[in-house]
């Protein structure tokens, strides 16, 4: 058994998993409050990645610029993507889902599927059908930087042949964790977050408390969109490319994560995201070395099977009834 590879895949799995968790939170927030599977959420993420490409391109900052400029640009792009995707998500709610609040629940779902196709086509108009290559903003030294090898505390024990813990992985996790903390602070500590939780539990009673339901739902879409936008930017940097159809796979993987964690459950979505990230990395990278005939081409099958099996046998998620607080 190749333990080096195994741990390498754990690191990759955690990085992609935290990305998936960001997207999964958007599904879970929206589902928790309006009981809608926002099928277009993956596309909101994908357009966030496209937007990141545009913003970074516009600033003209490249890996040649100073570190401060690079960091500043990345932060600016992150913020811009979050705003962009947040507004896009809320816009879709405003023009379509809100009108369907009292229709049977399949009506907004069908509209969401429609939107998913519309957004994919907009993406093709925008950047073409071929993969978009990420702007060269991270210096080569940085992308090649292996913390385990370079940092003195590891005593030069590891070389590149052993596990690499790349600066890029740190970047992903470093962006994700503050966002997760910020979001739970928002949901549990702010007035509007409280309104969201109340609305999710009993919409009508919440209205009687003086909560503006439509605005609260809109905020859920805004936050979900913002997280998807951040994930989009991170994905572009991490994968070095983005494509118009990436929202479908990421979206379904993230939805699987949300279902795995118990849809509506914020902590569950994060745990589910990490799990799916790990499964993804293991199936792609590690399983082929242990299971003869295994290959990355089976990953989709594995994850969709998990989705189907969890929905059938544990529709309340892995943690079942004993969920912590829902949205």
């Amino acid at each position: 058994m190749n333990w080096t590879l195994f741990f390498q895949m754990v690191i990759i799995g955690i990085a992609t998993g935290s990305l998936i968790a960001l997207i999964a939170l958007g599904y879970t927030l929206v589902y928790g409050i309006v009981e809608l599977i926002n099928f277009a959420h993956g596309e909101v993420f994908m357009l966030g990645a496209f937007f990141a490409g545009t913003v970074i391109g516009l600033t003209g900052v490249t890996s040649e610029n100073s570190t401060i400029q690079i960091i500043g640009t990345l932060l600016l792009a992150l913020l811009a993507c979050m705003v962009f995707s947040a507004v896009l998500n809320a816009f879709i709610d405003r023009v379509a889902y809100r009108r369907l609040r009292n229709a049977p629940r399949l009506a907004p779902l069908i509209a969401a599927i429609g939107f998913s196709f519309i957004l994919q086509n907009i993406a093709i108009y925008w950047k073409g059908p071929n993969p978009l290559i990420a702007p060269k903003i991270l210096p080569r030294e940085f992308t090649q930087y292996n913390i385990l090898k370079e940092w003195a505390i590891f005593g030069g024990y590891f070389d590149d042949k052993f596990i690499r813990f790349m600066a890029k992985d740190v970047l992903v996790i470093g962006i994700t964790i503050p966002l997760l903390i910020g979001m739970s602070w928002f949901v549990y500590r702010t007035r509007i977050g409280t309104a969201m939780r109340a609305t999710a539990q009993d919409r009508e009673a919440a209205a009687l408390m003086g909560i503006d339901i439509n605005r609260t739902i809109q905020v859920a879409f805004l936050i979900g969109g913002a997280l998807a936008g951040a994930a989009g930017m991170v994905a572009l940097i991490y994968n070095n490319s983005a494509r118009f159809n990436m929202g479908f796979q990421y979206g379904l993987f993230a939805f699987t994560a949300a279902v795995l964690g118990g849809i509506g459950n914020l902590t569950g979505a994060v745990v589910g995201g990490l799990l799916i990230g790990l499964i993804w990395a293991m199936s792609d990278g590690w399983m082929p070395t242990v299971v003869p005939g295994w290959g990355a081409q089976w990953t989709n099958t594995v994850i969709f099977s998990i989705l189907v099996l969890v929905l059938i046998f544990r529709p309340a998620g892995l943690f079942g009834k004993a969920t912590t607080e829902k949205v």
Binding site: R197, A198, Q201, D202, A205, A206, L208, G210, I211
Partner: peptide
């Protein structure tokens, strides 16, 4: 609700996943 009319609805409709205190705090929203 903001105008000073409060309703205790039929069937209670308290927020089940919130604590008693949180429910009361919701009342003062």
């Amino acid at each position: 609700a903001g105008m000073g009319i409060a309703q205790s609805p039929e069937g209670r409709r308290i927020f089940p996943r919130m604590t008693v205190l949180e429910n009361l705090q919701m009342g003062a929203f």
